[in-house]
Simulated scan of single mutants.
Amino acid sequence: MEFREKRLTALKRNIENLRNEMVLAYVKNGDMRHAQVLEISQLLDEELNRYAKCQQRARAAAKAGHRFVYHSRRSESVTARR
Score class of each variant (00 low, 15 high):
3 F>I: 14
5 E>G: 07
6 K>I: 13
7 R>P: 05
7 R>H: 14
7 R>Y: 14
8 L>V: 07
10 A>D: 15
10 A>E: 13
10 A>R: 12
11 L>C: 00
11 L>P: 01
12 K>M: 03
12 K>S: 04
13 R>L: 12
14 N>F: 09
14 N>S: 15
15 I>T: 00
16 E>D: 06
18 L>E: 03
18 L>G: 00
18 L>H: 00
19 R>F: 03
19 R>L: 00
20 N>Y: 02
20 N>V: 05
21 E>D: 01
21 E>Y: 05
21 E>M: 07
21 E>K: 11
21 E>S: 12
22 M>K: 02
23 V>T: 05
25 A>R: 01
26 Y>A: 09
27 V>P: 11
28 K>Y: 10
28 K>D: 09
29 N>R: 06
30 G>C: 01
31 D>Q: 07
32 M>T: 06
33 R>M: 11
36 Q>N: 14
37 V>T: 01
37 V>W: 07
38 L>T: 02
38 L>E: 05
38 L>P: 02
39 E>R: 07
43 L>A: 08
44 L>S: 00
44 L>I: 01
44 L>C: 01
45 D>H: 12
45 D>L: 09
45 D>K: 14
46 E>L: 02
47 E>Y: 07
47 E>Q: 03
47 E>C: 07
47 E>D: 05
49 N>A: 12
50 R>I: 04
50 R>K: 08
51 Y>V: 00
51 Y>D: 00
53 K>I: 14
54 C>Y: 13
55 Q>F: 10
55 Q>V: 09
56 Q>L: 10
56 Q>H: 09
57 R>L: 12
58 A>H: 13
58 A>C: 10
58 A>W: 11
59 R>G: 06
59 R>W: 06
60 A>E: 04
61 A>I: 03
61 A>R: 07
61 A>N: 08
63 K>Y: 06
63 K>C: 00
65 G>P: 00
65 G>Q: 00
65 G>Y: 01
66 H>S: 06
66 H>L: 08
67 R>P: 02
67 R>K: 12
69 V>I: 13
69 V>M: 06
70 Y>C: 10
71 H>V: 06
72 S>R: 08
73 R>E: 11
73 R>I: 07
73 R>D: 07
74 R>E: 15
75 S>L: 15
76 E>L: 15
76 E>Q: 10
78 V>R: 02
82 R>D: 02
